[in-house]
């Protein structure tokens, strides 16, 4: 059909444009990181990977990566525990203040992060806590825990409550029900929430800026270097950060596939 074909071409073009719009800026960072010139201009005259070598050798860089990674890992773990039980309270159980809880848990997401960061900084100061990467963890948690709660809650809403009752009826204790039924069924939500938590913490700038004190995360350093003392190390580290995110995504994907094939292998044993 003539019209069908035109529509298809338009749709393809639209898709390609959207993807370019989203990813072209990232590609330019990639180019900037492999250019020998101090400032990016096309065409690039001389390619080099020396900045990557420098980045990997640098103590500053490794300490930045360590700080960002530590924060992200701890935030992921805590926000998953909070989010898991929060989601059960959010979606599965009827209790007196549930309505209120459902609304309050969402508020931090809608709060502008800069304001949230400032509020937390003032609060840390007033109770006498010196800001460091540890306080940044608290700040990230305030913003990320509601998100993990929501993601897991979506999964919990689709959950048939009679599954837990049936397990109990067949003799399972509360702990066994959680381990054998609730957790496995919410696992896809937990994995998704974990990825979100890690990546949102890893890339977070406004909250970190206010609450890390003398410590610095990767996004903070990128910003500081852009403002004063740009070198191609900035796009290089930016690229490294993106690559790290991709690696995490890829690893999660791999784990899911392995888990599935492992399960199948065990099933056909």
């Amino acid at each position: 059909m003539e019209t069908g074909r035109t529509t298809r071409i338009v749709l393809y073009a639209y898709g390609v444009l959207a993807i370019c719009f989203l990813y072209l800026p990232l590609v330019s960072v990639g180019f900037a990181s492999v250019s020998q010139a101090r400032y990016l201009s096309f065409p690039i005259r001389r390619y080099t990977i020396e900045w990557y070598g420098e980045a990997l050798d640098s103590h500053t860089v490794s300490s930045l990566l360590t700080t960002s990674f530590t924060i992200a890992v701890i935030v992921t773990v805590i926000s998953l525990v909070v989010g898991f039980f929060g989601a059960l309270a959010f979606a599965r159980y009827q209790w007196r203040y549930r309505n209120l809880f459902q609304k309050f848990i969402l508020l931090p997401i809608f709060f502008p992060q800069a304001v949230l960061g400032l509020a937390l900084l003032i609060w840390f100061n007033s109770v006498g806590i010196i800001p460091s990467w540890k306080t940044a963890i608290v700040a990230h948690l305030v913003w990320i825990s509601p998100i993990t709660t929501l993601i897991i809650a979506i999964r919990a809403y689709a959950f048939d409550a009679s599954l837990e009752e049936a397990a109990r009826d067949m003799g399972a204790s509360t702990w066994t029900v959680l381990k054998e039924v609730t957790f496995p069924l919410l696992l896809p939500g937990v994995v998704a929430a974990g990825l979100f938590a890690f990546l949102l913490s890893w890339g977070n700038f406004p909250l970190s800026l206010f609450t890390t004190g003398v410590d610095s995360t990767l996004p903070e350093w990128l910003y500081a270097k852009m403002v004063s003392g740009y070198s191609p190390l900035v796009p290089t580290l930016g690229m490294l950060s993106v690559l790290a995110s991709l690696a995490i995504l890829f690893a999660a994907f791999l784990v899911l596939i392995l888990a599935k094939s492992f399960k199948q292998a065990r099933g056909t044993e």
Binding site: S162, L163, E165, R168, D169, V181
Partner: peptide
Amino acid sequence: PANKRPTCMVFQSLALF
């Protein structure tokens, strides 16, 4: 409680895992 009783129920939803 249900998990300590020697009885079992087939649920309306069947509740198969």
